[in-house]
Design a protein around this nucleic acid. Structure first.
Lengths: 356, 356
DNA sequence: CTGAAAGCGCTTACAG
DNA sequence: CTGAAAGCGCTTACAG
């Protein structure tokens, strides 16, 4: 095998080794690797075969040094919801390691503390920033970044701002779909636990619920709707209020998994079986959803996917800027998924059983 | 400001800019940046001032290209316990972005599927691998890596293998400390929920519990000990068995947080208040511990810290190998912490109240 | 204590 | 369709 011993003694296959092996210039190998057109098909095949044979993989450091697009991407997160974070990081890592992008992470305490963290990222040479929720939804943070003249992309931003890049799901549509599913399962009296009022997604989810109910000709009873704050405890309390009324619902839709888990605890405490006597569903599909028993039926956001997309978007944005081009803000909307687990079932209670 | 416009039009401050600004050679700047000795104190100060003034930060791509130690580090994980994973990734990222290390991630289904994933990592040019649990505890995976001649470091490996690098806490000592704390709180009848039998940590935690009980002159009653499998449900069931006996314990120590949360659910279902009538503590301090209500008293592993340490260890190992040097396997043991939250309190039940 | 030269592995820009 | 030259920003190895 054509191998070279680096100054320090490591063994690395370089583009020159491949070139020599095939009998072409390094330039041609480079072209093949980067999928450029102007290469004869035959040559391309030979190069590809050599790459395979020598187990060559390009040195990303050298490439980014040469292309000058060694983008440094900053990640800013706050309220480390670990469940979200790990998927988020996985997505970011997968994409950026492939692109040879350097990553810098910073955390802050909500939108208020963001400015200092962003300053730090910029001083460390970041070319752009990726924002996790709830930062991605903050107009204040967006403003700060615009003032700093730093490109950025928000992940899972619920609030639709037209002038910034974001990757999200349609929270309204997702809540609508989950509610419709409950109705399909025969539920008519459905309780709802709202999310924290300061999150825009809370509103969208509630609206989605309301729309689906209305569309099915059902009324969302005020006493079956309770305010929550995205915490387990708030779900626990909210469920207690909802279930304390004489006319109990057959299902409760909580705006996130932690609250749904809290609601399950309340049900158990009241001696209600989930899902036989009460269906409970959540939103987000965090670790909580599948650690609790029964496991939660919920809505899943493809977070890793969204995070990966955000890296691509940001990189494009940085590249455009370097080339002095305009960059049109893009808003990508990804598909959510309904995950049916053990906390939901057909209603078996009296009253109107579904036949729709 | 001395700025240079790259071929592509980006603005970057280089080592040459700093050199020119100070009036020395780039070489001297390089020396200062890398903290080398042979630089006059005065020169050093001037360079540092310039670095600050020009907001210079070295181009990691160029550096790793020049030093030839552009290590590619592979991360292998399985059973994505998201709670663990996010902290783990955060630690890895923080350390490796600072070192300019390239990261590749791969996942697999337990030790059985590891070989294929490792092969893939190696083919992608990884110089070494970091293993998350339970992979870090698998002799099989260790064997595979040794056969592949790839350096690696295991994170949170419970099994003490002398010939491999690992960063862990002392599970035995941690369980001992938690048990002692319960005894300090006046508990005498303490139940224990064991972890999955196939995890070595389960055994260490149980042993730690037993040691502490014995040392305090207390007996670990067989009917107060139940087998669990690290799942919420298994904790739920185990607690039910433990609490079904006439002589109830005043505290239950579960070998992880998910099981502790399950035990809390059982207690609630049986109408027992936590912690007033029953103290329940966990282990790991995952997201579950602080999402559940009451929040769980538990043992915390400094996972991000351990992960960062594993990157450093691996990098050292890779470097030694490149220099043709021997590398002594290192086993780092980090400190755990007892996190006291709302699920534990002094015992108020009859019987022996502590005065120790 | 400091510097001039060469090289890391790749790509851009220019020729042919 | 292919290649020779120069350069990306930094460091190593050698001189002084």
């Amino acid at each position: 095998m054509a191998r070279k011993v680096g100054r320090r003694g490591g063994n690395i296959v370089t583009i020159h080794d491949v070139a020599r092996h095939v009998g072409v210039s390094p330039m041609t190998v480079s072209r093949v690797i980067n999928g450029e057109k102007n290469v004869r098909e035959e040559t391309r095949a030979k190069v590809l075969a050599s790459v395979e044979a020598l187990n060559y993989s390009p040195n990303l450091a050298a490439r980014s040094l040469a292309t000058q697009d060694a983008a440094r991407v900053g990640l800013l997160y706050s309220n480390p919801s670990v469940a979200f974070l790990s998927e988020f990081l996985l997505g970011i890592l997968g994409e950026s390691s492939q692109a040879g992008t350097q990553l810098l992470i910073e955390s802050c305490d909500g939108p208020e503390g963001a400015a200092a963290a962003l300053e730090k990222l910029k001083n460390n040479g970041c070319d752009g920033v990726i924002l996790s929720p709830p930062l991605s939804d903050s107009t204040r943070v967006a403003k700060t970044l615009q003032d700093m003249n730093l490109p950025f992309v928000g992940v899972a931003a619920a609030r639709p701002a037209t002038d910034i890049c974001a990757v999200s799901i349609d929270d309204h549509k997702a809540a609508f779909a989950m509610t419709r599913r409950l109705i399909e399962l025969g539920h008519r009296d459905i309780g709802f636990i709202k999310g924290h009022p300061n999150a825009y997604a809370s509103q969208l989810r509630f609206d989605g619920f309301l729309s689906a109910m209305a569309k099915a000709g059902l009324t969302a009873e005020p006493h079956l709707i309770a305010q929550g704050y995205f915490t387990y405890r708030s779900g626990f309390d909210a469920a207690e209020r909802i279930l304390s009324h004489k006319q109990r619902p057959t299902a409760i839709f909580a705006s996130n998994d932690d609250m749904a888990a809290g609601a399950v605890a309340t049900a158990h405490r009241m001696g209600l079986d989930v899902p036989d006597q009460l269906t409970i569903v959540g939103f987000d599909d965090t670790a909580m959803a599948s650690s609790v028993w029964p496991e939660l039926t919920t809505v899943r956001q493809p977070i890793a996917d969204m995070a990966a997309a955000s890296v691509r978007l940001l990189l494009e944005q940085i590249r455009s800027r370097r080339l002095g081009r305009e960059f049109e803000p893009v808003r990508e909307v990804r598909d959510f998924a309904l995950i049916e687990r053990q906390s939901s079932t057909f209603t078996s209670s009296g009253g109107a059983i579904s036949d729709s």
